[in-house]
Amino acid sequence: MKVLVPVKRVIDYNVKAKVKADGSGVDLANVKMSMNPFDEIAVEEAIRLKEAGTAEEVIVVSVGVKQAQETLRTALAMGADRAILVVAADDVHNDIEPLAVAKILKAIVDEEQPKLVIAGKQAIDNDMNAAGQMLAALLGWGQATFASELTLDGDAATVTREVDGGLQTITVGLPAIVTADLRLNEPRYASLPNIMKAKKKPLDEKTAADYGVDVSPRLEVVKTTEPPVRSAGIMVESVDELVSKLKEKGVV
């Protein structure tokens, strides 16, 4: 069984994002970029399926700028077998929208015929939470989103989902799309021997045009603003003062 894992190159989660002066988006020039953390979890889950003998091959795909090949190398260093880079933008600020990504992924799924696609539940840059669901719709496959546990058994996947107020366990027939939530696993760090091996693993480079997908945006960003700055706290001299301040605010 083949497992396909889409991965996205996003602003590193440690970097404090700054909005561009014209408010058109987040400034990504000379900013450290990394693999979307939820995608790392998806890659880890696919590798574990391979290690358990359930999957034969793990293919990672990224749609975006050419530099996303670094992200794919990271996935290869974690243990994926091969990578497909779909260059769809020249400028790192040009984010490819979920529908276009889903269409490209559909074309790749048609070619590669994986039985399972594991994706991150969302990318931490735009928090769209849409590409996986759209891909399921385009393919007519079942989907199990926000997975915190995944078990494969024959032609079905049993998935525990993190839903509001608790956990929900569902079974989906394969082929299917699973999107990974935070608690699905703890991704491994790429070891040096695997980083060295990753250099020799195949990485195919394609373009959006190769799949006949128009990636021009359908959404218009009206405005991007930074969250309001937290106002400074005050120091209190005594417990009594603390209690009276809290009472003033009406919280006790």
């Binding site: 760090y189 790429a190 060295m196």
Partner: peptide, 24 residues
């Protein structure tokens, strides 16, 4: 130092291992 990009001394593989090690 920007340790995410390769330079004359550290290739992409060096920086990749650096990121792994930093997390480890």
């Amino acid at each position: 130092y920007d340790n995410s990009r390769p330079d004359r001394y550290f290739t992409e593989a060096h920086q990749a291992f650096r990121q792994s090690l930093r997390a480890f």
